[in-house]
Design a protein around this nucleic acid. Structure first.
Lengths: 123, 123
DNA sequence: TCAATAGTTCTTAATTCCTGAACTAACGAA
DNA sequence: TTCGTTAGTTCAGGAATTAAGAACTATTGA
């Protein structure tokens, strides 16, 4: 597995952030990513939304978020832990992420909710 | 020529706004659109940037902006006048457009085109 | 070493985007 | 009316991007 690319804070580009978050699936992932793993997000989509997303697609979504500078992905044992780079983005583009997250929060079809830990019916 | 579609204010979607403005060309158009015509934008791109954008491409860009709800296009005689729907978007998604425009204003490379590129590790 | 888990990468198909060419609409002049 | 010009839209194709199943890699535990 190759090293995962993460842009330096000052290399983060507005167009990449907007492109990454222009996809509702990725925006949902990003809002719920307080240290969520790919599998947890995957389970959240299939249980809540009953629209399962293939893990290869999710992996790509994580890559887009990562390469846009929105998240940081670090392997911990067998899983990958993703953390938000909110504060760095906020420092670089003040007010951008809060405004985007508020805009999405007014969607009629709410994004899937992740519940961490053991869930009834998961897996 | 068919009637041009404009979404009602409450039908404007965050993902469409983000998608429309995730393209630096469209973001540039939007920032300069205080009643600009397609030809004026076209001239601006070819003179400033010396990278002319085909009018068919510009027409598509205007359509994306229009159908995302960002601009209103009205024919006036032989030309099409485009006006920003900034206030409506601001009412629907408070703070979103100002944050995006500020984010783009800090770009190192001026608001010109741009190949939206993959960076590291592109296959 | 083998199996299981978690995720990445590969590959091909579907979708979207770009742009030259053709077309349409409005206007002015003859 | 008809012709010419301007301004922009729509069409059609190829290029680029995205989606997702299959194959692969890395880590842990038995």
């Amino acid at each position: 597995m190759r090293a995962l690319f993460h842009p330096a804070k000052d290399d983060i580009r507005a167009e990449d952030v907007l492109h990454a978050l222009a996809d509702p699936v990725r925006a949902t992932i990003f809002t719920q990513i307080a240290s969520a793993t790919c599998s947890q997000i995957c389970a959240a989509f299939s249980s809540v939304n009953n629209k399962p997303i293939p893990k290869s697609s999710l992996s790509q979504h994580f890559r887009v978020l990562r390469e846009a500078g929105l998240i940081r992905s670090e392997r911990q044992g067998v899983e990958m832990h993703n953390t938000s780079r909110f504060d760095e983005i906020e420092a670089r583009f003040p007010g951008l992420l809060p405004a985007i997250l508020v805009a999405y929060s007014t969607r009629k079809d709410a994004p899937a909710k992740v519940t961490r830990g053991r869930r009834a019916g998961a897996r």
